[in-house]
Amino acid sequence: MDVDALPVASLRDVTKTYGQGDACVHALKKVTLDLYPGEVIVVLGPSGSGKTTLLNVTGGIEPVTSGEVEVCGQSLANKKPEELATLRRKHVAFIFQFFNLIQTLTAAENVSLIAELTQKSAGLHERVEEALSGVGLLERAAHFPAQMSGGQQQRVAIARALVTGPDLLLCDEPTGALDLDTGRHVLALLQAAAREQGRCVVIVTHNSGIATMADRVVRFHEGSIAQVVQQEAGEARDVTW
């Protein structure tokens, strides 16, 4: 983690509410947080504490109610959906709990599709191979999602996320559907993305065991940051739950 660097993303007094009147739910309350390159941040908290909403507003797939979000120096306020899509294309990638791979495409095609569609197709074939090789699935490149295990599918999802070279990797329960060994493997890949490639990796989970691999642990409670712990990160392969 480079503490002298500018933050990849900054949240200032971010509030997010759903509904109105008596049905109004405050998912985020005045949240302020900076995310730095090369950093692994684990966001912990019980269900409904605002963890996923934090990811969504940071990635620009949900608008904030008040406050300000900046990603790579660009404010997300007043940006049109297509401008937000452009920003994500250049700087942000998501990894989801249920992988969200396209069932009709092979592993390699799932990875290359994002690069093709985001118009980063120069040297595409090499980059896809490199991404798949990075997650240890080069030999599975021609397999369809239905022919792979959950862990393999999540590794493809990581390769897909990394192939465009994002500055910010937002992971929502990336091990939620995986067993311990498979989960460790996936987490190690994410940690490597931060340490070796300098990306900022944000992992949202309710699994406190994952916190040991984080450079910073942010605990959420009822939409607010309850605690921020800066720590010496452990190895992802030693994570247990």
């Binding site: 069932q103 569609l117 985001t118 996320a161």
Partner: peptide
Amino acid sequence: ERELATLRAAGVRFRT
């Protein structure tokens, strides 16, 4: 829907 939403989250243009 989920595939398309994933692609949108990845920054793929609506036009595309």
